[in-house]
C-alpha cells in the first residue's frame, strides 16, 4: 500500500473521531463508540484502519498511562478489526449490531487473558486461570451493559453513518 498525504490525514481524523467520542461518553460506564467506529472504519476505509489502530492505542497510553489495560488494548481492538474483515460482505444492520454486541459481551473475557499470566506468577497456571476467572466474573454485569450498549449504538447509527461514507466514496478512495 502506497501511503499518501490523504491517507495520513484520514488516519489522524479516525483517531480524533474515536478519541472525541470516547471522551464524550466517558461519564457513562461501558458505553462507547470505539467498537462502532473501528467496525465502520474497517469497512469503509480499509487498510488505513491498520495504521489508525496503533496510533489510537499509543495516544491512549500517552494520555492515561501504560498499565495492564493497555496490554489488553494491544490485541482487543485489532481483533475487532480482524473480525470485521472476516464478515465484510455482510450487509445487515442486525448482523453488525450482533457482531458489535457480542464483542462487547466478550470484552471482559478477552481482557482477562493477561491475568492468567499475572495470577500464575510465582505459582502455577491453575492459579492464573482462577485469577482470570475471578476478574472476569466480577465484571460480567458491566460486560452485559457493554454488549447491549454496542448493539443499540450500531442499530441506531449504522444506516446514517454508512450512508455518509457511501456518499463520500469518491473522496475517500
Amino acid at each position: 500500500m502506497n501511503v499518501r498525504v490523504k491517507d495520513i490525514v484520514l488516519v489522524g481524523m479516525m483517531v480524533a473521531v474515536i478519541e472525541v467520542c470516547k471522551a464524550a461518553f466517558a461519564w457513562i460506564p461501558n458505553i462507547e463508540l470505539t467498537s462502532f467506529w473501528i467496525i465502520i472504519f474497517t469497512l469503509y476505509l480499509g487498510k488505513r484502519t491498520y495504521f489508525a489502530m496503533p496510533v489510537f492505542i499509543l495516544v491512549e497510553g500517552a494520555v492515561y498511562g501504560i498499565n495492564i489495560w493497555w496490554i489488553m488494548y494491544l490485541y482487543v481492538w485489532p481483533l475487532l478489526s480482524f473480525i470485521t474483515v472476516r464478515f465484510r460482505k455482510m450487509n445487515s444492520v442486525i448482523g453488525w449490531s450482533l457482531v458489535s454486541g457480542v464483542f462487547g459481551l466478550l470484552f471482559g473475557l478477552l481482557c482477562s487473558i493477561p491475568y492468567i499470566f499475572i495470577g500464575s506468577f510465582g505459582t502455577d497456571i491453575t492459579a492464573g486461570f482462577a485469577t482470570a476467572l475471578a476478574w472476569w466474573v466480577a465484571g460480567i454485569p458491566w460486560d452485559i451493559v457493554h454488549g447491549v450498549g454496542n448493539f443499540i449504538i450500531m442499530l441506531v447509527l449504522y444506516h446514517p453513518i454508512t450512508g455518509i461514507f457511501r456518499n463520500l466514496k469518491n473522496y475517500l478512495e
Binding site: 445487515s92 442486525i94 448482523g95 450482533l98 454486541g101 457480542v102 459481551l105 476467572l133 475471578a134 466474573v137 466480577a138 460480567i140 454485569p141 460486560d143 452485559i144 454488549g147 447491549v148 448493539f151
Partner: peptide
C-alpha cells in the same frame, strides 16, 4: 431466520453470562 437465530444466540449468551455471574461470583 439467520437474524432471528443471531438475536436468540445473543440473548442466550447474556443469560449464560448472568448464570455464570450468580454462580461464580465471590
Amino acid at each position: 431466520s439467520k437474524i432471528i437465530l443471531g438475536v436468540v444466540a445473543f440473548v442466550l449468551l447474556i443469560a449464560a453470562m448472568l448464570t455464570a455471574f450468580f454462580m461464580l461470583r465471590e
